[in-house]
Every structure is written in C-alpha cells, then in structure tokens.
C-alpha cells in the first residue's frame, strides 16, 4: 500500500540553527501518528512545513504522491489536508453552525458569491458534521460562548468538512482536562477509523500519546531520534533522558 503522506529529508534552519534537520517519515492510510519531543525540538516547525505555513530549505512532502512544498496553505487544504490548531482558531463572531458552514462554502467554492444568504447554505451537511462530534445541540450558540473543550470539537468538525485524507492536529488536547483529552482523542480515533483518515498530531500529554498513537516519532534538536510503538518509546533510554524524564509527572510510566 502506498503511503498517504511521504516526508523526505525535510530541513529548515533559522539563522544557522537547524530547527528541523533531515526528517523523513511516512504515513499509511488510517494511521494515527504522534510527533513528540521537548519544547523547541522542531515539532511546530515541522508541522508548519507540512501545512504550507513555512517554506523548508530542502526536502519533500508528498500527499498521495503529489508534492506539497511550495504550495500555500489554502492549496494544501484543497488537496485534502485538514488541520486543528494548538490554540483554537474559530470565527468567534459566528454561531457554531456558521463556522462549519464557512468551511463547506469554501469547499464548494462559493466564497465569492455576493448574493446568497450564507446562513442558508449547506445547513444539513453542517448539522451532520456537528452531529459527528456531538455538537448539534449547540449549533445555534455564538462560538464566543463555548467552553474550551467544545471549541476543540468544533475545530474537529471544521477540519473534517472537506473530507480530508490527512488531518494535522497541533497539540489537540492542550489546555484540556485529562478525561476530556482522552475523550477527544477517542472521538478522533473513532472518526479516523470510520473515515479512513490519517492523522499526524503533536502532543505533550504522554497519557494521550500512549493511549492512542499507532506509532510515535520523537524529535530532539530538529532530528528524529526515535520511532516506534508506545512501549518501544517508553523504554528508549535516549528519549527518557531528553524528554520523558523520570516519569513521575505522568501516569503512564507508573506513578507510585
């Protein structure tokens, strides 16, 4: 089976510092891949190159065999890459449903329509997406009133609006309570399985990572230092040294 995403020798320097240095990996259909590492290891840089916000110095990123490097973020989105943000980014002056409708309007290439009533377009599709993330009861609420966890779920619905092949989630559970984190990722995992979407996510919560990731990549100082399943990563001495520490602050490594 050919990879959905193939990253090859990706590199980026800022003022002589190698933020991302020769990173290569690939992702299969339906795979749930975690990218972890200390702050400043290059996770965000890596992510921003995948979704087109940063231009790499070298390397290639292919989605279903098609080169993404050099394309602006909106083109990459149209090719089937959805994304959620570390700090939620939604349209706060609109209702929950309107937020999803915006993505649908863009997907159907109606954004230059000057005459239709925006709120009357793609209502059913929007409601179906909200249903998927259990947000349909809140559809008419202003987005600005939502609790943080609900915003995260709304973002997921928005990201799924154009039926992407690949979902990029930057610290999807940042700022959420432990159980909400697990719930959100379980929800994501379910959708991933149902729709055959592939996911790359970065995360600091090791419990979330170990619970859901099919495979884990560890970045340090811009380089891939380890790759494997949860168990392999947990036992890797190098990863313990640079990132996981003694393991007293997260549950997965066996708090006494």
């Amino acid at each position: 089976m050919s990879a959905v995403l193939a990253v090859d020798a990706l590199a980026k320097s800022f003022g002589g510092v190698h933020a991302v240095d020769d990173v290569s990996f690939s992702l299969d259909k339906g795979e749930f891949l975690a990218l972890i590492g200390p702050n400043g290891a290059g996770k965000t840089t890596c992510f921003n190159m995948l979704n087109g916000y940063l231009k790499p110095d070298g390397g290639s990123v292919k989605l279903n065999g098609r080169e993404l490097i050099g394309l602006p973020p909106r083109r990459i989105w149209r090719l089937g890459v959805g994304r959620t943000f570390q700090i939620t980014a939604t349209f706060l002056s609109m209702t929950v449903r309107e937020n999803v409708q915006m993505a649908l309007i863009s997907h159907h290439r109606r954004i230059y329509d000057l005459f239709s009533r925006a709120t009357r377009l793609y209502v059913d599709e929007a409601m179906a997406l909200l249903d998927l993330v259990s947000m349909s009861e809140q559809a008419e609420r202003p987005c600005s009133e939502l609790a943080y966890g609900d915003l995260k779920r709304l973002e997921l619905a928005i990201a799924l609006a154009h039926e992407p092949d690949l979902l990029l989630m930057d610290e999807p559970t940042a700022g959420m309570a432990p159980s909400e984190r697990i719930a959100l990722m379980a929800l994501t995992a379910g959708i991933v399985e149902k729709r055959g979407v592939s996911v790359v996510f970065t995360e600091h919560d090791m419990d979330v990572v170990f619970a859901h990731a099919h495979r884990i990549l560890v970045l340090n100082r811009g380089q891939l230092i380890a790759e494997g399943t949860g168990d392999q990563i947990r036992k890797n001495p190098l990863v313990q040294e640079v990132y996981l520490g003694g393991g007293s602050v997260f549950e997965g490594a066996g708090h006494a």
Binding site: N39, L244, G245, G246, G247, F250
Partner: peptide, 14 residues
C-alpha cells in the same frame, strides 16, 4: 505552571 512544558522541566518546577 506545568501546562505545555516538557516533563523534565515540570520536574524542575516541582
């Protein structure tokens, strides 16, 4: 204080 920082730093914080 522990939000969004690596586990090693969280240990220092403690």
């Amino acid at each position: 204080p522990s939000e969004g920082i690596a586990p090693v730093i969280v240990e220092q914080m403690a």
